[in-house]
Amino acid sequence: MRNFRPGLYSGGAWFSALLAAIIATPVIAQTVPNFRTLKLAPGFSSTQGKTNGYTGGTFSLSAISNRDRDGKMCIGFADSNPDFIIELDKDFSRLQVLVNSGGKDTTLVIRGPNKTIRCGDDTGKSKDASIDDQQWPSGKYEVWVGAFEPGVKFNYTLSVKEK
C-alpha cells in the first residue's frame, strides 16, 4: 500500500466494496474435460456412447491412485485434466469402456462418484485399454485415456457400451 493515495480513490469506498465482493464470492471448482462430456441414460445408442480424443500428456495416472477398487494397477501418462466426463443419468448394472487406437499401448483410469477408481490396460491380445465392470451408480465419472509412455500422442475412439 506504499503507493496508495486516498484522494485518488474517493476515500477508497469502491476499493472496499470490491474487496468485500471478492471475499464474499464462493470459489466453485469445476472439472472441465479436455474433449467433451457424454450424458448417458439407460438404452443409450452406440453413437451417444462414442467419442474421439488423443493421448499426449506427461501426468502419471498413478498419482490419481496406484490401484483401483479391484487391486488392478493404475498406469500410464495423460493430461492432468480428465479427457472426458461421463454423466450417468441412472444406475447401470454393467458397462464396458473401450479405447480403440488401432492397437497402440493405451491405458484407462476412471474416477467415479465417491472417488471410486477403475483402471484398465491391455484388452486380451490388444494393447488397447478397456474396463468391463459392474455397479456403475448414477453420477459423474472422470475419464483419463493415457499412453504407456509419457508425451506419446495416439488418436483414439472411446466407446461406452451397456452390457
Rank of each mutant, 00 (worst) to 15 (best):
K39H: 08
Q96G: 09
A63P: 00
N100C: 11
I86C: 04
Y9M: 06
N34F: 05
L158G: 01
F15M: 13
M73S: 15
F77P: 10
D89Q: 07
Q48W: 03
W136V: 00
I85F: 06
R94D: 06
Y54P: 04
A20C: 08
F44N: 03
E162T: 07
A20Y: 08
G102Y: 04
Q134S: 15
G124E: 08
T37D: 12
I23L: 13
N100V: 05
N3F: 12
D70K: 02
F148W: 02
F59M: 07
L108I: 02
T58V: 06
G112P: 07
N81V: 05
K163A: 06
W14Q: 15
T51D: 07
K163P: 00
M1V: 11
F77R: 02
E87V: 11
G103F: 10
V160A: 04
S101V: 02
E142I: 05
D121V: 00
T51V: 11
L18P: 01
T157P: 08
T51L: 02
D133L: 00
S62V: 08
L95S: 00
D91R: 03
N100E: 10
D70N: 06
D91C: 04
A21E: 12
A21T: 14
S138G: 14
F44R: 00
G139D: 12
K161H: 13
V145F: 01
R36E: 12
T123N: 11
K90D: 15
R5I: 12
Y9E: 13
R5Y: 09
T58I: 06
D132H: 00
P150Q: 11
S159H: 01
E149S: 15
T58N: 11
T107I: 12
L18Q: 08
F154H: 12
I85W: 03
I86D: 07
A147K: 05
T107H: 07
N3Q: 08
D128V: 10
F35S: 05
N155F: 05
T37V: 13
